[in-house]
Design a binder for these strands. Structure first.
Lengths: 143, 143
DNA sequence: CATCTTGTACTGCTGCACTAATACAACAAT
DNA sequence: ATTGTTGTATTAGTGCAGCAGTACAAGATG
């Protein structure tokens, strides 16, 4: 028996949202992991449990967990549950950088076509960062 | 016969691309306007003509033109054709920055969720730039 | 005015993403 | 070994975006 039990992950799903349910789950867990609210080694709720709680099909949660696994954020142990992966894991970081590399390649491709220099892109990057961080000051609040 | 004729817009459509045809058209025209290859006042090909050239349905081109109109890039004169909108340089510049800002915002949101710092993003940006420029040297060139 | 060319509107088809229903496989606990 | 719990796989249903077929409205053109 586990003294800690599974994590009481707090998720809010909007069925009317244009974003797919499984992506809503993915994003919220990603965010909670990123901000430390869900710590490495924590066991996530079993697929069926979370599915029942959110009133969706288990397959939907399964897909979300699979996405998270690909992202290197969680680790599935066959029949023993799903756990938050060690963020310091080189493999996890490698995966994350790979994802970002794709986005960056797209960005650079567009910049090329628009005749915008790397320096301008960098400047715009910092500029947007400032704007976005000043808006999203609410960082990983606890309730 | 028109002395100037309609612009011989050079578009390459990939039917197998995951990106919708009408968006491929939109993007390519956006780029060509942004980099000055299509200048203000230029008449775009009639919907049917371009549709026939690309072997797609006129409605698909119509949708693309409508999107471009919403973006303020083109101006439709009821039954007299579609023209590249007037505010050339400022709008073109504006368009370019708008396009890049979108991509950059997506990139930053992704980075935040993945717990990757701005510094890392910047580093990765330069890294990918080096890789890509050593391979590709495509630009807004005129053939 | 008659006609041509332009963009528009409406309708239906198709493929795909998302979700669900259900049955299966594998390891842990006892 | 038996049982329970875990994730997995397969199949089908549903809604919608993208696209095409066709008929229409309206200004240009002679």
């Amino acid at each position: 028996m586990h003294p800690t039990g599974t994590a009481a992950v707090q998720l809010h799903i909007n069925a009317h949202d244009k974003l797919p349910i499984y992506l809503q789950v993915v994003n919220q867990i990603r965010y909670q992991v990123a901000c430390g609210r869900l710590q490495p080694g924590t066991e996530l709720p079993p697929i069926r449990v979370l599915a029942e709680k959110l009133i969706v099909n288990p397959n939907t949660i399964a897909r979300a967990y699979r996405e998270l696994e690909v992202l290197g954020l969680v680790e599935k142990r066959r029949t023993a549950g799903t756990y938050v992966a060690d963020p310091g894991s080189p493999l996890a970081r490698e995966e994350r950088l790979k994802i970002l590399a794709e986005r960056i390649d797209q960005l650079l491709a567009e910049s090329e076509l628009l005749g915008v220099s790397l320096a301008d892109v960098t400047q715009l990057l910092n500029q947007r960062y400032s704007v976005l961080t000043s808006q999203n000051s609410g960082d990983c609040s606890n309730d």
